[in-house]
Amino acid sequence: MFLTFNSNKMFFMFILFFSTLVSISSNSWFGCWIGLEINLLSFIPLISNSNNILSSEASLKYFLVQSIASINLLFFIIFKMILMKNFEMNNFISIMINSSLLMKMGSVPFHFWFPNIVEGLSWFNNFILMSWQKITPIILLSYYFNNNLLIIIIIMNSIIGAIGGLNQTSLRKLMAFSSINNLSWMLFSMMISENLWIMYMFMYMFMISILCFLFYLMNMFFINQLYFINMNYMIKLSLLINLLSLGGLPPFIGFFPKWIIINFLLMNNFFFMTFILILMSLIILYYYIRILYSSFMFNYLKLKWMKIFIKNKIIYFINLLSMISISGMILSTFFYL
């Protein structure tokens, strides 16, 4: 039974990756839409679990939201083909196609499904939803985006992603709002350059994979578990480095792509947008540091008997990956030179 489950899971993961390749290599909108549908139908079996009510509910919500977005996308693709010569409708069609793709990636103002679905998923499925599932919609958005709409969406993503995480006690919801905030930087990097977006995406996937792996190892889902459990300080140090890197604090590698985007914004006189993006990043760093400070300083003796045993080899491997995050300042220095 265990082997069957694993083989089925590997099969659906292969289809998931294959569907992304179908979408981004297609030369027509219908091919892109088919790739998105294959992606949806392969991700549903990965997140659904008959033994867990939250997972079943999350898979149903995900299916409904993605189906609505796909129907809208298909409708306006056909609408675009019919009214190809009508230039007056082009602006409206581009806004509606962009809205469908933004709904698929969980962007503001279509983000309400995202934190709710994240709450019902395992850490591995969360990692896929917050990283791989954003690749196809962003690439399709880069083919046909409305510049004015996207700038408004970037500002809204930055603000909602920062403020939404302030009152959260769930680590999964916290990561979801952090993902919404990072989406604003991703969208702007996509507008600047495809290479910059690829670099930002890979760095984001690297940082979030370490955090999801750490939370999975320690079986943590809420902030108060970081205070109570008597965990290894090396794991806490890795958590510190990767959370601050994800927030974009300068010595770490997460700051490097953000620094390039800030440079571009300042060179092109986008001072208001630069101010908003930096201010919201500071708010995110505030609640990251609040969590980390409490987890380092609190010593809850009542639950001292609760101890997590993790093999030393795994701890060393996580620390090695975390040390890569510190190389951000070196990269920034060479880039400046």
Rank of each mutant, 00 (worst) to 15 (best):
F255H: 03
I276K: 09
L249R: 01
L303A: 07
K304S: 14
F255P: 05
G248Q: 03
K258T: 00
P250Y: 04
F271M: 14
I283P: 11
I289V: 11
L292K: 10
K302W: 13
L303D: 11
L292Q: 07
W305Q: 09
K302H: 12
N263D: 11
G248L: 04
Y286L: 13
I262N: 10
I253Y: 00
N263S: 15
I278F: 15
K258F: 02
F252G: 01
S295Y: 04
N242W: 06
L303W: 10
G247P: 03
L244Q: 00
Y287P: 06
P250G: 02
K302N: 10
L277K: 03
I276M: 09
L249K: 00
Y300C: 08
I291V: 08
F264C: 08
F270N: 12
S245C: 06
S295V: 04
S281E: 05
F264P: 05
F296L: 13
L244T: 01
L265F: 05
L244N: 00
K258M: 04
F275T: 13
F272T: 09
M306A: 09
G248V: 02
I276S: 09
T274F: 14
M267E: 15
K258C: 02
I276L: 07
N242L: 08
I291M: 15
S245A: 08
K304V: 12
F255C: 05
F298K: 15
Y293W: 12
K304P: 06
M280R: 04
G248C: 04
S281G: 13
S238Q: 08
I262M: 15
Y286F: 15
F256E: 03
I253F: 05
P250D: 01
L279P: 11
I260F: 06
I260V: 15
L285H: 05
R290Q: 12
L265V: 04
M306D: 10
G254I: 02
L249F: 13
M306K: 14
F255I: 06
Y287S: 05
I283N: 08
F252V: 01
F264W: 15
N299F: 13
I235M: 13
I262L: 15
W305F: 11
I276E: 06
F255S: 03
F271V: 10
S281Q: 11
L249A: 02
L282D: 04
L282T: 02
L277D: 02
G248I: 02
K302L: 14
F252C: 01
L282N: 03
F272C: 14
Y233V: 11
L244Y: 00
M273D: 03
P250E: 02
P251E: 01
Y293P: 07
N268A: 11
S281L: 07
M267G: 06
F272G: 10
F296K: 14
L244F: 06
F252A: 01
K236P: 10
Y288T: 07
F256N: 01
I276Y: 02
W305K: 11
